[in-house]
Amino acid sequence: MRPTSRYRAAARMIAAIGVVSLAAACSGNGGTTGGGDAGGGYPDQNITIVVPFSAGGPTDTVTRLIAEPMAAKLGAQVVVQNVEGAGGTVGAGEVARAEPDGYTVLMHHIGMSTAPALYQDLGFAPLENFQTIGLVTEVPMTIVARKDFAPATLQDLVAHVKANADTVTLANAGIGAASHLCGLLFQTAAGVKLQEVPYEGTGPALTDLVGGQVDFMCDQTTNTSGQISAGEVKAYAVTTPERVKSLPDLPTTAEAGLPQLEVSVWHGLYVPTGTPQDVVQKLSEALKVALADQKVIDQMAKLGTAPVPAEDATPQAHRTKLEEQLGTWAKVIADAGVKAS
């Protein structure tokens, strides 16, 4: 083979890849550019929101929902990056060590308040290493069981698991997952110690619940409402003070007689400590604007949740929530004797 024909072949191959990547570029225009009020220094480059969980999960979806209106308000590109691992602590640790300039922002959920209790050598302290921006949303959870599970109401369930503590199985989506935390709180509230069956994520856990392999679990409404309305699982209660719009007949835990069991998967935005106050304010303002966006409200409603009220989307309210939750979970987790490392 002559060398020229070789290189021609290579060139053709590269051209083929070029066509493919062009197609990708046309459909893959993922960044969101805003054209809003720029000026005043910050921001003059892309802002990255780190999501410490996998793309497509509930936290990622919420982040991507608010990224666009936030970008429009800030007048800069907002890029969502997934840095997964170790219950969200890898991504959080990375942001804790990032430059405190407001260009690296963290979206984290309830896991921020449980990490210090679950992990030794965490490498960061939520209150010391992070500046809060504001709360974003609080996702309700539901207690569900396989459809042929005997108890009919939440109080029946508590009585049943107490009487059969050595045979009942409680599924969860892994150590530190929202379903695990809710399960711990259930055991504390009911005053019982159950056999927990961990899974790797909600999907497989719910599969085995629908298949009747395990008895019950507690998970985010986002994941369970489809199965509940189809009658594939039996639902007992929702864990927030108010009922959920998509499941109007489902009582709250307080109504059903277990008021101690109140938990939601709350989400908030953070920047590293040392970020200038005016930058924090700008981010908080942008968050508020995003949460008031009708499209965001609609999309969140579809997810079975809603933006927090405007007064909670502030650094102060978020910090108060974080402090309170850190205290709650430190006790629950220590009592349960759970350790992730």
């Binding site: 979806t61 986002t222 409402s225 489809g226 199965q227 309305s229 189809a230 594939e232 998509s246 999309q299 579809k302 997810l303």
Partner: peptide
């Protein structure tokens, strides 16, 4: 979910 369809047996 984002498209407002609840994944489940009712789809």
């Amino acid at each position: 979910i984002v498209h407002g369809i609840t994944p489940g047996p009712n789809v």
